Simulated scan of single mutants.
Amino acid sequence: MSVFTYQCEGRCSHTEARAGTFTTPHGPVQTPRFMPVGTLANVKTVTPAQLQTTGAQMVLANTYHLHLQPGEDIVAGAGGVHRFMGWNGPMLTDSGGFQVFSLSEMRSISEQGVTFRSPKDGRIINLTPEESMRIQMELGADVVMAFDECPPYPASWEAVKVATDRTYRWLQRCMASHQAPHQALFGIVQGGVYLDLRREAAVALTALDLPGYAIGGVSVGEPPELIEKIVQAITPLLPQHKPRYLMGVGTYREMVRAIAAGMDLFDCVIPTRLARHGTALVAGERWNLKNARFRRDFAPLDATCPCYTCQTFSRAYLCHLIHAHELLAFTLLSIHNITELVRFTQRIRDAILRDRFAEEFSPWLTSELPEI
């Protein structure tokens, strides 16, 4: 019997939203759930102990970046990525496929794989499906992602077709080379903004009966309405008894609407990136704490938030830290922002279990709220 299971525990009677539990060797993940990004085996400016207080259950790391620094052999020598970074909960590693998109000026693609020039020392890096699996097996995360080609936006149907077909062939090679039963290999549905290619990919991937499925290649420059259209069309094609992961999405509106379509897991760098720019996520809004109005505001950032930041410090103090260029500001705002997005998805989960999701989150579902 697989060590990975997904159990649906509640459904919305008005949408496709669902609440469930994804079981992994390092513990359960209650869905829907936002997952913080720890690219280099750390969530920026936050310790694992602090991260645990946010309610985060699953954390991401990146295969490509850990291959460059410090190297998967060092991570494996430490006992795997969990022990290396001091995080005892579930972890997921991206395959390096996103770097096929983001580092387009530094790579070349062939049927064999992708050749990168290292931004650190200029050396040539050949990343193939087999190499991605080897690295991820050494890193030892609970969930590993198939190596895929993420096409840019905009791109022609013909170009996206080539990338989507190649992604399927690469997935077959990933499956053949992945030999770690304690890891769940997720397939990634690509296809750009072309629904026919997305549907074709989803049908082909689900026939392979993988432990989980992701929708990738969104949030690469296309407008939010196209992302929503893709998610609504493709999510129903993914298996009901497997976890569903929408890659690279972590804004309020996009998560609510994707959950309404039946998605379970989300990741994004937004909470820590905003923190490093002095911005807090509060009740669905973005607050720029550099603004003068916060200089003498001695209220907590959010009186309803249980995080260490809100329970201990005032808006005035956070404003002071930012203007003083104190690094503590990044930590305190990161703790709050991660807590906010995790709590947001936890509130959605609770509403689904009470069958109140459509009512309690109707403003996000029915109105054209600004994207945040």
Rank of each mutant, 00 (worst) to 15 (best):
P223L: 07
L301V: 10
F4R: 01
R173A: 09
T31R: 00
F266L: 07
S334A: 15
Q240R: 14
T309W: 01
P223Q: 02
M106G: 03
C310Q: 07
T39P: 12
T304P: 00
Q50E: 12
R199D: 13
L238E: 09
L139G: 01
R83M: 06
G248L: 06
L208Q: 11
E9K: 02
V162P: 04
E111V: 06
T235L: 15
A204G: 06
P211F: 02
L197G: 03
G96Q: 08
L195A: 15
E200R: 08
E359I: 15
D355Q: 01
P154Y: 15
M175V: 12
S314D: 13
R166Q: 10
T5I: 09
T15V: 09
G191E: 01
D297I: 11
H14N: 07
G262D: 04
S13H: 05
A204W: 04
T279R: 11
A180C: 07
P28W: 03
D209R: 15
L92M: 12
F22V: 13
F34E: 14
G10A: 14
S156L: 04
A258K: 02
V75C: 02
Y153N: 00
T5K: 15
G217L: 10
Q50L: 06
Q346R: 06
L341R: 10
A316S: 13
E285N: 08
L103I: 09
L66Y: 10
Q57N: 05
V193E: 00
T272F: 13
V75I: 14
A292N: 03
M137A: 06
R107T: 02
N42C: 11
K120S: 00
I372N: 14
T15D: 04
L238V: 09
E149S: 02
Q172S: 08
Y64H: 03
T279Q: 10
N291Y: 14
R296L: 14
A260H: 06
F294E: 11
M263E: 01
V162G: 02
E360G: 02
L265S: 04
T63Y: 01
E105N: 13
L237K: 12
A207N: 11
V342P: 14
L301A: 07
F4L: 03
R244Q: 05
R173K: 06
V249S: 13
L369G: 04
F34K: 04
F101P: 12
C8A: 07
G97M: 11
Y213K: 12
P129E: 07
L328D: 03
V81G: 10
I109S: 06
G216L: 12
E360I: 04
K44G: 10
E149F: 01
T54V: 04
K290W: 13
L171P: 01
L333I: 12
L332C: 07
H82W: 14
